[in-house]
Design a protein around this nucleic acid. Structure first.
Lengths: 251, 251
DNA sequence: AAAATAGTGTCTGTGAGACACTATGTT
DNA sequence: AACATAGTGTCTCACAGACACTATTTT
């Protein structure tokens, strides 16, 4: 193996992406950065929520993913191209606002899809994002005909890597819900342990034992004095999320 | 809040980044994708390893990160610009090969850094990557003067977001080492439990109890019949990593 | 002999999982 | 009364953490 240290021997004399030179970048042929082909960069977002399963609204809550109608027909995750000078997160917020009327999201990056042939229109990288919010904040959009929610575990036919994005978003959501009570606030400020458990079952994709679940969550909950009413069976105490679970030295 | 469903009202009529139209993309002003400004895309990689601490080589192993010399002076993580039609992972492999003579890495994406002002040379996104490999595979590069290894928890002065990349890489490595014996093969095919523990201590950044560590790792190890020799104290049995820990239904 | 390392026995505490039981409301 | 739900008691199992002890080699 030939050792090649320091400056590379091809026309790319760059040493790190963050850039350090105050001087305008020129390679040995005198061309600047602007003379090389660059990819378009897009963002796509899997926005998850929980809502009643099926069309009847009777069953247990279910994990759903927001989809928007494509001009070409069919459905896809909301996305857009990154505009000049724009942050990725702002492009995501813009796509959610303009395509689905959704505001106030806090999307997180998932993965960059970079197959040069993944988009027929040209060289397009896509930075996948994920977020979750209560169904009520999507209801306005879904009532129209430009957006819908579909079961996240069987999202129907999605183009290209969108199904993979949804899977990664679900995986991340499950990881977050494994250690905290409803961190994405699908429920309001106070709730019974049954309501909390049904939400966590929707996220986990399977049922949870009520006694184990209660004992695991109780340390992260604060009892309000109040009692639920209007339901079948014995009324239950209402809880709210604890301010902060003390994790000294945590990230 | 104004509901805006379906097609957005600005010039960006794109509905998802993956692209579905067979027709060349044109917006309402008739411009194609090629007419919009696009960012340069770079990759930067934190390549971690474990090696003797300090210059003397006497102490316990320590977590190290590969750095390359910058033309402007100082040190940085290896990186390069993404070439047309190239995959991100291939750009990473190319930068490691040309800047540090390292081959055979399996980098994973960490995060996209997207501050429009992070690089004085222009609009540059950087996709941070991380990987780890045994020190022996870096030794050739580090022997030269174009590359060095530095303690990963105090990597010296690194430009821009490189320190953040190293922190994220260390976090990811610790998470992986918490559940498996030396998954990145810093050690050879067989090793004593002491050697394994010292490597895991280097990754974790603190000492581990030998009895607890042994009992936790034993289920993922297979005893070879052989016994270590040439060390102080009682010789120890040599183990190798188990083929696969059975995790039925796992990802 | 002293030091260094390998390997094991044992106790304690925590927490998940499972089963069963009591308590209190609605229909 | 029947049913649905809330909440708790209790047992078992697994495992981490900690301490102590024995075993075997080098120096």
């Amino acid at each position: 193996m030939t050792k090649r240290l320091g400056r590379g021997s091809d026309s790319d004399s760059r040493n790190e992406a963050t850039g350090t030179g105050r001087e305008p970048f020129r390679d040995r042929s005198g061309r600047s950065l602007q003379d090389y082909p660059r990819p378009s960069v897009a963002v796509d977002t899997a926005l998850l929520t929980v809502g009643p399963s099926g069309g009847d609204g009777t069953g247990s809550p279910e994990l759903l993913v927001l989809q928007v109608r494509r001009p070409a027909g069919g459905w896809a995750l909301p996305g857009t191209f990154l505009h000049p000078g724009e942050r990725l997160i702002d492009a995501v917020l813009r796509s959610l606002r303009e395509k689905a009327g959704v505001t106030g999201a806090s999307p997180r990056q998932l993965h960059v899809f970079d197959d040069p042939d993944r988009d027929e229109r040209g060289w397009v990288l896509s930075v996948a994002h994920a977020d979750a919010m209560p169904l009520a904040r999507l209801a306005g959009a879904i009532d129209g005909d430009g957006a819908r929610s579909a079961p996240a575990t069987s999202p129907g036919s999605l183009p290209y890597d969108h199904a993979e994005i949804v899977r990664a978003a679900v995986r991340q959501l499950r990881h977050r819900y494994a250690s905290a009570p409803d961190p994405d606030r699908f429920l309001g400020p106070s709730f019974t342990l049954r309501e909390l458990r049904l939400v966590h079952e929707a996220v986990a994709g399977h049922t949870l034992q009520k006694d184990t679940f209660r004992r695991r969550m109780e340390s992260a909950l604060v009892p309000t004095g109040r009692i639920s009413s209007g339901t079948r069976g014995r009324p239950a105490e209402l809880f709210r999320r604890a301010r902060r679970v003390s994790t000294p030295g945590g990230p």
